[in-house]
């Protein structure tokens, strides 16, 4: 530091303009970070309030009118569907990411661009694909299985993009260390690269869970609009939380409003628990990595 610089920074007066701008920016960032938390809390609060009937219609009596059985069934249905979808999407997504991270080629960059674009395609379109491909062409019926495959398609781009970023973040020194020990490319990937990329991949899984949990439109298409439930061993895809909310709201009579609100509360709550669990998992792996 030269003498001139030190003299300038030791002044105790008003901080220079850049410094104030920096603080303003930090403030904006903080507000932006807090906003979704407040919004989420407000949503959850509003849902619980209107569901429990603290509002105009008098007391907790409303709660009894909520069909608790079907709500629980929907929550379990959602868990089952999302687990199946992730069980399909995670291995495929990681495989896609591994392929994309291979030696650079035009084909690969074209593929990567397309997969990233798929993440922005409206999910209704995935529903149409699911309807044609899984329900009709592969004759899986309107059951949970077709729904799970469709949902897996919806989250696949998210999983693949996140897994790819995680793979890229693994330092090349680790790969070289593996090769120098006489490992084959597959051994290096399996035993060095994938374990190192795991925390990043779990971040992708969190995003995928959140997305899969809230999807309604594509599942509506796959499940079909028929009023009668379709017989299926794997379960009825209409008995999941987002569709439960949708169906209840579609009914014309009043009391169902409370039911819908409770469903939303359960949906948000379950999502929070799941995402929290996934983040804990990631945190544990990160801690292990950083020591």
């Amino acid at each position: 530091m030269t003498r001139g610089e030190s003299r300038r920074s030791t002044g105790l007066g008003v901080p220079p303009a850049q410094q104030r701008r920096g603080r303003l920016f930090a403030l904006v960032c903080m507000v932006a970070a807090i906003f979704p938390v407040v919004l989420g809390a407000a949503l959850l609060g509003a849902a619980i309030e209107s569901g429990a009937g603290f509002g105009a219609h008098g007391g907790l009596g409303k709660l009894s009118s909520v069909d608790a059985g079907s709500l629980l069934g929907s929550a379990l249905g959602s868990l089952w569907l999302v687990s199946m979808a992730l069980a399909i999407a995670l291995p495929i997504g990681v495989g896609v990411a591994l392929h994309l991270e291979g030696p650079r080629s035009r084909m690969r960059s074209l593929l990567a661009l397309n997969i990233a674009n798929l993440a922005a395609v409206p999910s209704v379109l995935f529903g149409l694909v699911g309807l044609e491909l899984f329900v009709r062409a592969l004759r899986l019926g309107h059951g949970m299985l077709a729904a799970a495959f469709t949902l897996a398609l919806v989250v696949l781009p998210i999983v693949a993009v996140a897994a790819r970023a995680a793979l890229r973040a693994v330092p090349d020194e680790l790969r070289e260390g593996g090769y120098a020990l006489g490992a084959t490319p597959w051994q290096v990937t399996r035993q060095v690269v994938l374990p190192a990329a795991l925390p990043g991949m779990l971040s992708g899984a969190i995003l995928a869970i959140a997305r899969a949990f809230g999807e309604a439109a594509p599942l509506l298409l796959v499940a079909g609009f028929a009023a009668t439930s379709s017989p299926s061993v794997s379960g009825d895809p209409r008995q999941i939380l987002p569709l439960h909310v949708f169906q209840v709201l579609a009914e014309p009579d009043g009391p169902s409003r409370a039911d819908a609100a409770m469903s939303v509360a359960v949906l948000l709550g379950t999502l929070l628990v799941l995402a929290g669990w996934a983040m804990r998992l990631r945190h544990r792996h990160e801690r292990r990595r950083d020591g």
């Binding site: 330092p171 020194e173 680790l174 070289e176 260390g177 593996g178 120098a180 020990l181 060095v192 374990p195 190192a196 292990r288 990595r289």
Partner: peptide, 11 residues
């Protein structure tokens, strides 16, 4: 065998 400039222990 090979040893690199930057220590690269596996995680």
């Amino acid at each position: 065998g090979m040893v690199f400039q930057k220590a690269n222990p596996f995680p």
